[in-house]
C-alpha cells in the first residue's frame, strides 16, 4: 500500500474533525479558552511579584509565563489527541472507522496531526496575549523554542496514547483521564521550579519526565542565556522511550479490544 494511500486515509480522519470544528464555533473557542485563562491569571501573579520585588521582575515573568505557556503545549497536545479519539467514541463511529482500511498507526498519525492543530489553535492566542498584556514574547527564547515545543508535544502524545489505550481497555470509565492525567504530572515536570527544589528522593522521578528537562532548558536560556543541550537530548531520548512504550501499549490494547469485541461497544 503506497504512502499516498496512507496519507489519504490520514487526511480522511483529519477531515472528519476539521469539518466538526467548521460547524461548531464553541469548540474552536474552547481550544483557546484555558490556555488564555491560565496565561492571564499567571500574568497577574507575575505582575504582582514584579511590584514587590523589582529586581527579579523580568526573571519571574519569563520563568512563570514561559512555564505556563510551554506547559500548555504539553497539556493541549495530550488533550487534543485523546479528545479527538473520544469524539469517535462519543459519536459511536468507531465501528465504521475500524472496518475501513485505516490502519491503527494511521489512526495515531491522524490524531497526532489533529492534536498539533488543536494545540497551535489554543496556545498561539495565549502567546500573543502574553506579549500584548505583559510584554513577554515567548519567541525571545530564540530558535530553540521549536525544540521546546517539539519535546513537549511528543510527551503529550505519549501520555495521550497511554490514555487512549486505557480507554480501549476500560471504556467510558477511563475517559476522565483524558482531562486529568497530565495535571497529575505537573509537580514532577518542574514547570515553575528547578528539579533541585524537589526532595532528593523525588528528583530521580522528575528526571524521568521529559518535560522536566525541557523546563530546565528553558530556565537555562532565560537565566543564563545558554542552551542546555544535555537536558534537551535527555528530553528527546526519554520521549522516544515514552512513545515506544505508549505505542506498544496502544497496539496491545487495540488487539485485546478486537479479541474482546470491545470496538463496537466502547463508550457505552
Amino acid at each position: 500500500m503506497s504512502g499516498a494511500s496512507a496519507g489519504r486515509r490520514v487526511w480522511g480522519l483529519m477531515y472528519r474533525h476539521l469539518a466538526l470544528y467548521r460547524r461548531s464555533w464553541p469548540r474552536v473557542l474552547e481550544l483557546a479558552y484555558w490556555p488564555v485563562l491560565q496565561m492571564v491569571v499567571w500574568g497577574f501573579v507575575t505582575a504582582y511579584l514584579a511590584g514587590v520585588q523589582n529586581n527579579v521582575a523580568s526573571v519571574a515573568a519569563g520563568v512563570l509565563l514561559g512555564g505556563v505557556l510551554l506547559w500548555e503545549v504539553a497539556i493541549r497536545s495530550q488533550m487534543g489527541f485523546a479528545i479527538s479519539f473520544l469524539e469517535e467514541v462519543w459519536s459511536r463511529n468507531l465501528g465504521h472507522v475500524f472496518v475501513s482500511p485505516l490502519r491503527p498507526m494511521e489512526l495515531v498519525a491522524a490524531l497526532v496531526a489533529m492534536s498539533a492543530l488543536r494545540m497551535f489553535a489554543g496556545v498561539l492566542p495565549a502567546v500573543g496575549l502574553a506579549w500584548l498584556l505583559y510584554g513577554f514574547g515567548l519567541w525571545t527564547l530564540g530558535p530553540v523554542i521549536v525544540l521546546f515545543f517539539a519535546g513537549l508535544m511528543m510527551m503529550g502524545w505519549a501520555v495521550a496514547l497511554a490514555v487512549t489505550a486505557l480507554i480501549l481497555r476500560h471504556g467510558a470509565g477511563a475517559e476522565p483521564l483524558a482531562w486529568s492525567v497530565l495535571f497529575g504530572l505537573t509537580p514532577f515536570a518542574a514547570v515553575f521550579y528547578p528539579v533541585s527544589v524537589l526532595p532528593g528522593w523525588l528528583q530521580p522521578v522528575a528526571l524521568m519526565v521529559p518535560a522536566a528537562h525541557v523546563f530546565e532548558g528553558m530556565r537555562g536560556v532565560l537565566l543564563d542565556g545558554t542552551i542546555a543541550w544535555g537536558h534537551l537530548a535527555a528530553a528527546f531520548g526519554l520521549n522516544l522511550v515514552w512513545l515506544a512504550g505508549a505505542v506498544a501499549l496502544f497496539l496491545r490494547q487495540f488487539q485485546a479490544a478486537r479479541e474482546r469485541g470491545a470496538l463496537l461497544s466502547i463508550g457505552e
Binding site: 480522511g12 480522519l13 477531515y15 472528519r16 466538526l20 461548531s24 459519536s91 475501513s100
Partner: peptide
Amino acid sequence: RLSVAENLMVYAHLY
C-alpha cells in the same frame, strides 16, 4: 454533527 456530504467525503477518503 457532520453533514451527509461531509460524512460521505470522510469515508471516500478512508477508502
